[in-house]
Amino acid sequence: MIRIIEPGLLSTIQDEGRHGFQQYGIITNGVMDPFALRIANYIVGNEKDEAGIEVTLTGPTIQFEESMLIAVCGADYSALIDNEPMPLWRPVLVQKGSTLHMKFSKKGCRAVIAVGGGLDIPAVMNSKSTYVRAGIGGFKGRALEKEDVLQIGPLSEQTKQIIHSLTKKGKTYMTSDWSISAAYLNDLYERETIRVMKGRQYDEFSESSRNEFWEETYKLSPQSDRMGFRLNGPVLERTVSEELLSEAVSFGTIQVPSDGEPIILLADRQTIGGYPKIGQVASIDLPVLAQKKPGESLRFEKISHTEAQESILKRERAIRELKWSIELKVRRG
């Protein structure tokens, strides 16, 4: 089991989300950076949708009360295991009694800690994700707190093989001689430009507003959270006056309320929205978006639905190949 010594700013249990219940008003939740969670799970031998610990801006201090296999993916928090630097994007076998320290994120905003065997907590509506506002899911329906203790689930055969290969190292903590190639990570967490498709009400905005949306730079407001990013920048003007019927929204929907400043809806978004939608962030760039910090800049780049589909299919093929590569390395020891 693992014990939370200090929780950090916001550390919650998240998986890929609570799907299939939006018609009942139950929001999806889930991890903000699905790419980081998925890769971290593959690294430690879990299924891709197993829950991990998502940390935000300042990381936790965690004590391991038994030896276990972990991986940290996403933002760089200068993680330490017992005062020794811990590598990201690779399996790490920590010894019983060791402590993981995660400081301030120096690159990116969020990281995911995956544990071999997963977190042994009950699923609520088919998901372990935490929805803090409603107090459901995760660990007691809330963010992690000091002295919380999390149990670990049964290990997969692949996790056992990875642990076996690392126990030969004989150090404070053990890690593999392989990691995720920079080819998968380049341009993922530092890029300013976010690719966006036109929204359903795109044509209802003035020509000058549409041009500014693509050409100008926005900054992330401090009044941003897992529900949505508020953007400070050019005020967008809608030329149509009638109100809209509320309709479904998704991760990355860009709404424009009456003040004209866009809001990008995120993992904890509501199920429906009545504001006009000028754009939709392409799925391929949701991890880029999730790593933005308050005060950072971003710009929008136009992409067609076809281009967005081709991009995500290309990444899916790359992730599938990555998964096979990990499995092959594990089999070879």
Rank of each mutant, 00 (worst) to 15 (best):
Y184S: 04
L328C: 02
G137V: 14
I39E: 05
E50V: 06
E327N: 04
G141W: 08
A290W: 00
E192M: 07
E301D: 10
L100K: 05
P91W: 00
I136C: 04
A51K: 10
K106S: 09
I254D: 13
G52D: 10
S325D: 07
W324L: 15
I43R: 02
A51R: 09
Q255V: 09
K103V: 00
Y173T: 03
K140F: 15
G52N: 09
I113M: 08
E242D: 11
Q270I: 02
D82E: 07
K96Y: 07
K293V: 05
I26N: 03
M86R: 07
T253M: 07
A308H: 10
A134N: 08
V55S: 14
E212N: 12
I70N: 11
R331C: 08
T172H: 03
D285T: 00
L37Q: 02
T217W: 03
A282Q: 06
L144F: 12
K323L: 04
S67A: 13
D203K: 13
G97I: 06
I81Q: 01
I194R: 03
R38A: 07
L37K: 00
P262N: 12
E66D: 04
K169F: 01
L144D: 13
V112I: 14
S105I: 07
S250V: 13
G279Q: 05
I254W: 05
Y275Q: 01
R230I: 07
K96Q: 14
K219C: 04
D187H: 09
T271F: 04
I254H: 08
I303K: 09
P154H: 12
Y24L: 12
L313H: 13
G59H: 04
S129F: 04
